[in-house]
Design a protein around this nucleic acid. Structure first.
Lengths: 167, 167
DNA sequence: TAGAACGTTTAGAATGTTCTAAACAAAGTA
DNA sequence: TACTTTGTTTAGAACATTCTAAACGTTCTA
C-alpha cells in the first residue's frame, strides 16, 4: 500500500499546493489539505489527514472548514463510520477563480463604495472651500471617477469568465 | 493649503488602498504610498511621504522600491532638488493585473514544472511497482494531467487581457 | 449511565511579516 | 577636508498569523 517513491511524489505535490494556497490568501495547510484530497481516490477522514500532514487535529479541523467555505471540499457520508469524511471538489480552476473573485473584486468594490461617500463629502463642503482648495477637490473627483471606472471594468471582465470549466 | 476635510478624505482613501495592497500580496504601506501619489498632482519626495503616512524613512525607502518594481511608480527628476521624487503610474488597472499575473500564474506554472518532474519519476519507477501501486501511479498521472490542463487554460486566459487599458 | 469516539474551541507558543531607529554610505556644499 | 543632505541597510521590536495541546461538548455504545 505504502510505496516510499509514490509517497514522496504525493508529498512534494502537496507542498507546492500549499504555496499556491498562500498565494491565494489562504493558509499553507488549506492548500495542502486540498492537494491531499485531490490526489486521493477515496474520501479521507480528519485523523488520516492529521497523520499524513503531521499537523494537529485542531488545525485540520479549522482549515478543512475554511476550505469547505471556499468550495474546495465537501463532507461525504461513509457507510459504517461516524467520522467526517471529505472529498475534493475536482473543479480546481473554479475554486481558484472563486477565491480570486471574492478577493480582489470585493476590495475594489469596497473602494468604490467608499468613493461614493467621498464624493458626497466633497460636494457637501465644496461651497466653503477657497479657490485653491476647490481646484484640489475637483482633482480628487477626477481621480475617484477613474477608480470607479476601473471597478466597472474589473466587474465586467470577471463576468465573462465561464461559470463551469471542464478539465 | 491644508484643509482638514480634504485631508480626511485623502487619508481614508489611502487607508482603503492599503487594504487593497495587502489583498494583492503587497504590504499595506505599499498600497498607501501608491494612493498618496495617485491623489497628488505633483511628484512627492520621500520626506513628504514619511510625514504624511507617519511611518519611518526606512519603511518608505523599502516600500517605494517594491512599488517601483511592480511598475506602480517611477522616479522623476525635479529641477533644483537633490531629492528623489516619485509619481504614480496612472494605469492602476494594469498594475493590479501585472501583480495578479506575476502571482498566481507564476505559482501555477511552478506547479506544472514540478509535475513534469513527477511524471518522469513515475515513469522511471513504474516497472518496479506492484499491480496495486501501478494503479495508484496511473491515478496520479491523470490528476497531474488535469493540473497541466488548468495551467494551459489560465495562461491562455491571461493572454486575452488587453495589454493597455484606457480609463 | 459511564465511558469511548469524534470534532470543535481556545489559550498560548511558534513562526512569519513589517516596522522603527540607528548606523551607514554616497554625494553635494562650503 | 569637514559638514550637510539624502537614501539604504539592518538588528531587533512590534505585530499578525497559524499552529499545538488540552479542555470541552456532543453523540454513540455497552
Amino acid at each position: 500500500m505504502e510505496n516510499p517513491e509514490l509517497d514522496k511524489i504525493r508529498d512534494e505535490f502537496t507542498e507546492i499546493a500549499g504555496q499556491l494556497g498562500v498565494r491565494l490568501g489562504l493558509s499553507r495547510t488549506v492548500g495542502q489539505l486540498y492537494a491531499l484530497l485531490f490526489l486521493s481516490d477515496e474520501p479521507l477522514c480528519l485523523d488520516y489527514m492529521v497523520e499524513r500532514l503531521k499537523v494537529s487535529k485542531g488545525s485540520v479541523s479549522t482549515n478543512i472548514r475554511e476550505l469547505e467555505k471556499w468550495g474546495g471540499v465537501k463532507k461525504v457520508w461513509v457507510k459504517g463510520s461516524r467520522k467526517d469524511f471529505y472529498e475534493a471538489n475536482p473543479d480546481t480552476l473554479k475554486i481558484v477563480i472563486n477565491r480570486f473573485k471574492g478577493g480582489i473584486q470585493e476590495r475594489v468594490n469596497e473602494m468604490s463604495g467608499g468613493i461614493d461617500k467621498f464624493e458626497k463629502a466633497l460636494s457637501k463642503i465644496e461651497n466653503s472651500l477657497s479657490v485653491e482648495e476647490k481646484k484640489k477637490a475637483q482633482f480628487y473627483k477626477e481621480k475617484f471617477r477613474k477608480v470607479k471606472k476601473m471597478q466597472t471594468l474589473i466587474n465586467t471582465f470577471l463576468k465573462i469568465i465561464p461559470k463551469k470549466i471542464f478539465l
